[in-house]
Simulated scan of single mutants.
Amino acid sequence: MTVRETHLVELVDSNGQAIGETTVADAHQLPGRLHRAFSVLLLAPDGRLLLQQRAAVKTRFPLRWANACCGHPAPGQTPEAAANDRLREELGIGPIILTKVGTYLYRAEDPATGRVEHEYDHVLRGELAPDDPLLPDPAEVADLRWVEPLDLMAALDADPLRYAPWLGGVLDRLLSAGNAAERSGGR
């Protein structure tokens, strides 16, 4: 078991209200315990998204493509603070300004590892230029690439098993937030 598996996560109800805490390892055992998480989407000025391929040693959905980074706030920690910690650890960047674009509640079982994701996911958006230096930790990240959001939507439909199961819902929150901003004139 990795050290990260012993960290505490905040258990929540379906409305995101804290109801307790447990370890990462316990939260991800069958049947899965609903807990707080975050997913970071990093956008370039031209609108492309940074994807990471999860490292082979990940205990949940290894080698699948996912958003720039994700993780779990410690009990009482804000998703934004935890996300900036993980951006530094996984990609060697930060801190950066992150904006919440929504939440996404999902449950997914990983047939390869027997682990479960059951998360109340805070979807966070940040900006990063494609030429900003990235220092991915090989224990966390196998590869990185920039993609167009609409191309990613098509790829998710065509070959969903190449991607983390939460990526479609996270991307949907980003695109929905962008459409709402356009409808309101960017206000």
Rank of each mutant, 00 (worst) to 15 (best):
Q77F: 08
Q77P: 02
Q77Y: 13
T78L: 15
T78C: 15
P79C: 09
P79A: 11
E80L: 01
E80C: 03
A82I: 12
A82W: 09
N84F: 05
N84K: 03
D85A: 13
D85W: 12
R86D: 10
R86K: 10
R86Y: 09
L87T: 00
L87Y: 07
L87G: 00
R88S: 13
R88W: 12
E90Q: 07
E90A: 11
L91K: 06
L91N: 04
I93L: 11
I93P: 03
I93T: 04
G94M: 04
G94Y: 12
G94P: 07
P95S: 08
P95Q: 04
P95I: 03
P95H: 01
I97E: 06
L98V: 12
L98S: 08
K100N: 12
G102E: 03
T103C: 06
Y104M: 09
Y104P: 02
L105Q: 12
L105W: 14
L105R: 09
Y106I: 00
R107S: 15
E109P: 03
E109Y: 03
D110E: 06
D110V: 09
A112S: 13
G114S: 05
G114F: 01
R115S: 12
R115D: 08
V116T: 09
E117R: 05
E117S: 05
H118E: 10
E119V: 02
E119T: 13
D121V: 12
D121S: 14
H122R: 10
H122K: 09
H122P: 12
V123A: 00
V123E: 11
V123R: 13
L124N: 06
L124H: 00
L124S: 01
L124I: 14
L124T: 02
L124C: 04
R125Q: 10
R125L: 14
R125T: 07
G126E: 15
G126A: 14
G126T: 13
E127L: 10
E127K: 15
L128D: 00
A129Y: 04
A129F: 05
P130Q: 07
